[in-house]
Design a protein around this nucleic acid. Structure first.
Lengths: 141, 141
DNA sequence: CTGGATCCTAAATGATACTG
DNA sequence: CAGTATCATTTAGGATCCAG
């Protein structure tokens, strides 16, 4: 027994049932701080220490910075170098993969500067209509 | 009194303090189902009814499909047309903006098919090392 | 200086039952 | 058919304190 879908459709469905590559990438980037940490490391052009990042990012807590850096390290975008001096010195830098993801975030950024305003506008418009009470009956277009 | 950063750095910090456009876009796309719903509507090339989407997506619940569609509609990516027949008939389709976001998700997809395997590999490698116990002392590299 | 450990709140997701 | 409402569970994010 099949599912009632043709083979091409089945392939399309299978693609996201077992983990879609696009979503893996989006999950890496879409948490609250990842983009900013990557951007900071990119801007510096070299390694940055923990507290330099912390100060630059301003209102990130230690915990979230640690967590974000750990995730980026785990995903291979950031490298972590520990110098066992006292006081300790830890430097974070982009890996090749982390550098490469910059081409993608640039693409996102370019699309965003053009279209994010439209999204915001649509959102505002939608919220205003919703606040005005239930629609009379949106028939067709 | 300033913050101790130069003007260019201050501009960089300000950019994400009050809402970064890239993050707005990522937040729209990075929930569990948005990408798949957009992809389904794109594939169909025309409007789709609620239960057609539901069946095609397979294991999405009614609630999550409704929620995802509402958000996409609110953000201006999807349009909703209600035909007050009985039983009711509701059709969802991509707006121009929703169609346009396809160029972005394509870019994400292309980067992803090349690099997601590297991310997965890095992750596995990291987890294996972590499971092997605390590292002896990672000096430098 | 770096960051681990804990406790807490809020948000996302999901299961289930009900309705015009 | 296309939802809404409710409750439970999971995950993300954050505040605070402590330690090598």
């Amino acid at each position: 027994m099949g599912t009632g879908y043709d083979e091409e459709t089945e392939r399309w469905r299978a693609r996201f049932r077992n983990g879609c590559a696009s979503r893996t990438v989006l999950e890496v980037l879409a948490n609250k701080w990842a983009l900013y940490v990557l951007s900071a490391l990119r801007r510096s052009g070299g390694p940055m220490r923990f507290n330099d990042l912390r100060r630059l990012l301003g209102d990130i807590t230690q915990k979230m910075l640690t967590q974000t850096l750990r995730n980026l390290e785990r995903d291979g975008l950031v490298s972590r170098a520990v110098y066992p001096t006292v006081p300790p010195r830890v430097e974070y830098a982009l890996t090749e993969l982390g550098l490469d993801v910059g081409t993608l975030t640039d693409a996102v950024g370019e699309w965003a500067v053009v279209h994010a305003p439209q999204i915001i506008a649509a959102r505002t418009h939608y919220d205003e209509r919703a606040a005005a009470g239930p629609l009379p009956l949106s028939v067709g277009r």
